[in-house]
Computed example of a mutant assay.
Amino acid sequence: MSYTGPEFDPPQQRRPRRGPLTVALAALVPGALLGWLVYEEVGGGGSGAEVRTASPAPASSASPLSSAPGTASSAASPGASPDASPGDDGKVSGTPSARPGGTGPLKGKVVVIDPGHNPGNFRHTAEINRQVDIGTNRKECDTTGTSTNDGYTEARFSLDVAHRLRTLLEQQGATVKLTRDGDSPAWGPCVDERARIGNTARADAAVSIHADGSAPGNRGFHVILPGSVHAGAADTRPIVGPSHDLGVRIAGNFLRETGEPPSNYLGEGTGLVTRTDLGGLNLSTVPKVFIECGNMRDSKDAALLTSGAWRQQAAQGISEGIVSFLRRS
């Protein structure tokens, strides 16, 4: 999801590699964020969460994927095909529907996963450019999303991670619903409908999965939290607190599982950003966050985002954050 310019920009020239001093300073950021997130979760930031321990962030001199726990593969191969791992985004016909959970610790909990954008949006420009009410103003129904310079689209990435995440949550007993799945619907849904799906399901948690389209050299993940909005059809005041808790837990676990650093261009190193201009958050009546898993236009992030093994780690980190949130709520 891009923040400036067209939603699907042409490939850009890559920046020269950063010098050793910049790399050394950047290595300090994940550790600082992880400590801050633990502080938040034990109550220092007012979240009131139970005490949990977290593993140190991987050092920059080692592969962030070489020792990340909880994955099917011990290392992601950046050069691997995006479809190299099982659980990728094969098309599934039919209207997205809730899949009942099992008998695990999350039995009775409902999670809505919102894979950003849709591959069909490129062929339905009139439909996705239609303006919809997001409470504070009107915006496009949806956008095309971004892609890596080699053409791996955000829509394809987000659905693959959503499938992996659904499997992990169902193994914990949760009932999981996707806002889109495979080739259904043909485009969209619109951002207001994406929020409505979570509201109608009375989700205990909702997560929208994205990857950013910022400039090369900008890298890292960030979790987008809803700001306080009370305008028109939007009233986020009841969900701001629980959404913050959900976002903090996802950010901490995502960092630990993937080794991906927090964004170096948004969030001031916290990995957390608050926004009031996103219909998917403004119109939600259930705890909801967005996660931008990395920047598709940065070569280092793109190498991770196109790796099936790394996407499994991403799903694991998001899942652990959701499970942590649901087990205390």
Rank of each mutant, 00 (worst) to 15 (best):
G102H: 06
I128L: 04
P78L: 09
P82L: 13
P119E: 01
P82H: 12
G101R: 05
G120C: 01
G104Q: 13
S81G: 08
N118W: 08
T95H: 11
Q131C: 01
S97T: 14
P86Q: 14
P100I: 10
R99Y: 02
G120E: 00
P100Y: 12
T103E: 11
V110Y: 09
N118F: 02
V111D: 05
G87N: 11
S81N: 14
K109A: 05
G90S: 08
I134N: 08
H117I: 01
P82A: 08
N118K: 08
G102M: 08
N118S: 13
A76F: 11
I113H: 09
G101M: 07
G90K: 06
S97W: 05
A75Q: 15
S77M: 11
D114R: 03
A84M: 01
P100N: 14
V112A: 05
V111M: 00
G108N: 04
N121E: 01
T125R: 09
S93M: 12
G120S: 01
G102S: 05
A126H: 02
A126P: 02
V112D: 03
R130S: 06
P96Y: 07
V111S: 01
F122L: 08
T103W: 02
G94T: 11
V111W: 10
R99P: 00
T136K: 04
G90E: 04
V112R: 01
P96S: 06
G104Y: 15
A80T: 09
P105C: 04
G90R: 06
V92I: 15
N121C: 02
G90H: 09
K109G: 01
P82G: 12
E127Y: 05
K91A: 14
V92F: 06
V132I: 14
R123V: 00
V92C: 09
T136A: 11
P86A: 15
P105F: 08
G120Y: 02
A98M: 10
D133I: 10
H124M: 03
R123F: 07
P96K: 04
S85R: 12
D133S: 06
K109V: 05
T136R: 09
R99M: 14
G101T: 03
I128M: 02
G116L: 03
G116E: 07
K91S: 15
T103K: 09
G87I: 07
H124V: 02
A76Y: 12
S93C: 08
N121M: 02
A98L: 08
P119R: 03
V111Y: 11
P119V: 09
D89R: 12
I128R: 05
D83S: 12
A84E: 15
L106M: 05
D133G: 08
E127N: 04
A75C: 12
G116I: 05
T125V: 03
P96D: 10
G104C: 07
D89A: 14
F122S: 07
A84G: 10
I134K: 06
V111K: 10
V132W: 05
R123A: 10
A98G: 03
K107L: 13
V111P: 10
G79P: 07
Q131D: 06
L106D: 02
P86W: 15
G104P: 12
G94S: 12
V112Q: 05
G135S: 15
S93A: 15
S85F: 12
